[in-house]
Every structure is written in structure tokens, then in C-alpha cells.
Amino acid sequence: MQADAKRISPSTVLIASAALALLSMIAFMTIGAKGSWSFILSFRGTKLIGMVLVAYAIAVSTVLFQTISGNRVLTPSIIGFDAMYTLLQTVMVFFLGAAGAASVNPQAQFTLETAVMVGLSLLLFRALFSGGSRSLHLLMLVGVILGGLFRSLSSFLQRVLDPNDFIVLQDRLFASFNSIDANLLGIAAAATLAVTFVLWRLSPTFDVLSLGREAAIGLGVDHQRIVTLLLVLIAVLVSVSTALVGPVTFFGLLVASLAWQLTPTASHRFVLPVAVSIAIATLVGGQVVLERLFAFNTALSIVIEFFGGLVFIFLLIRGSAR
């Protein structure tokens, strides 16, 4: 096992996963393509861009969240990000009604949701980061509790909701890769690009942050400032993915775990792109399987969780052997 891990270089893993991602994108665009290419390009292209954005946002936000929390089983949903999204949707349908909620400008809605999620993360952080090492764990705990509160509030509102409105709401809350809102792609892409730019500037600190708070400070990283900034960026990325397809939580954990396991180094220079590539390959590849093999008879999340779960179990068994 050890010899194997040494023979595979990080670049090989990166190239292989990138190739896999590219292959699944090509497969998605070409398999079963009949008729006018301009129609196929715009129809499938929109969907593809949406999926790539979601894959990127989920992979990057989960990996970075795991880095700053120093824990490999957490995802941003632990601090209630997706519960917040559910609550926002519920409140909107509750007060505006199904018709009213449908008529809200999607860009404005996205901006509002992002602002609320960033605000929430900042509030959580400001209130708790009074210095001291237990703060991050306290933040997680408070996040768990707030998440529970948001969930209860949503389910309460859903119970008193008009049944017709409830069905509309339920439709909005199911993660769906088939109903990506093309109106949102532009603003979501812009937000992702802006986040990526800041992340690029911060990237040298990622590896140091994974050493833990004390070691990072000892090496001269302004831990509090960088972690706050990263949480805000993660909040934006989570908003991007939830706004486009709805809450998908297990997916991030799956992709990040696969990336950490497969990459023979802990360096973010490799882990982040590998995670993004795996996310794209799983999401887009899964969609191809769904559309061509099962003829839309099932949901993508089922396909992903089935195959992802298999790979995950395989990795766990292989890992325990070493």
C-alpha cells in the first residue's frame, strides 16, 4: 500500500481526475445528440455550465471548510447554511404565496440570499471569536443549534402553509439538476469568479491553516482574519450551489473525502483541483448515466449517492488495510 502511494505522484492524480472531468463533460454534450447543434449547444451548454458551477462551489467550499475546522467529516451544512436556505425559501413562500414567490426577480433573490447567508456567518463568527482555541468548536456547536432552530421554524411554517403553496415550496427545496435557472447563471458565475479571485490571493495560507490555529499563528498567519474571510467566501459558494440546484449536502462530503483520500499529498494546490475535478466528473457523469441509462427515471442524487457510496466504502476498506 505504502509503495503504491509513493509511486503515484500528485500530478498524476490531478491529470487523471481532470481528464475524467473533461471526458464526462464531452460525453454530456455529445452522447445522443440529434438535430441542430446550435440548439444542443445552448440547451445542454446551459445545464453543463450550471453543473460545473455547482460542482466547483460545493467541492471548494467543503474542502476549505474542512481545512479551517481541522475535521474531515464536517461540511458547511454543520453551521446551518442549508437550513438557513430552506428557511429563507419557506418564509418567502409563506409571506408572498406561491404566485408571489414565483414572480420575485431571481437575481434579486440570489443577492438577498447570499447577503443573508454571509451576514449569518459573520454574525456567528463575530459573536464567538473572542479569541481562544475552543472558539471554532463553539462556533460549530452554535451553528448546529441554529441549524436546528431554522429547521424547526421551517417545518412549523410548512405545517401551517396552504397545501398548494406547500407543494410549490417542496418542489423548490428538492435538489434538482434539471431545473437550473438560466437567469441565475450569470450572477452565480460572477460571484464564483469573484470568490475564486480572493481565494487565489489567500491560497498560500491554506496548507498552513490545516496545521491548526496555534501552528498557523506561530508561522505568522493572521488566523482570525483569514478564517473570517474564508467563512464569508464559503457562505457565498454555498449560496451559489443552493440557489442553482437546492441543498445537496452529502455530495460535498463525498467529493472532499475522495479528494483527500486519492491525492497522495495534503497540499491544497493538488487537493482543491482534484476535488473540483471529481465533483464535475461525478455530477456531469452522473447526469449522463441518469439521462442515457435510466432515461430520467430516477434522481441524480440517487445515482451519485449510490456510486459515490460504493467508492467510499471501497476506499474505507482499502484504507483500513494499510
Binding site: 481541522g70 498560500p204 496548507d207 498552513v208 490545516s210 496545521l211 505568522g220 495534503a266
Partner: peptide, 28 residues
């Protein structure tokens, strides 16, 4: 500073770890 409890989640080789000592100078 070297602390008592050096718990690291990342899977690092000895050389990777030692290389972090240069971070204040070369920023990675």
C-alpha cells in the same frame, strides 16, 4: 514556538512538515 499537543489532521510527510518552517519567509 513548539507546543505540547501537535495534532494535525492533514497527512503530512516529515519533509512537508519541516518545510512549513520556511512559510514566514517564502509564503509557500
Amino acid at each position: 514556538i513548539m507546543r505540547q499537543d501537535n495534532h494535525i489532521t492533514a497527512r503530512l510527510s516529515v519533509r512537508d512538515l519541516v518545510a512549513f518552517g520556511r512559510y514566514p519567509y517564502s509564503k509557500g
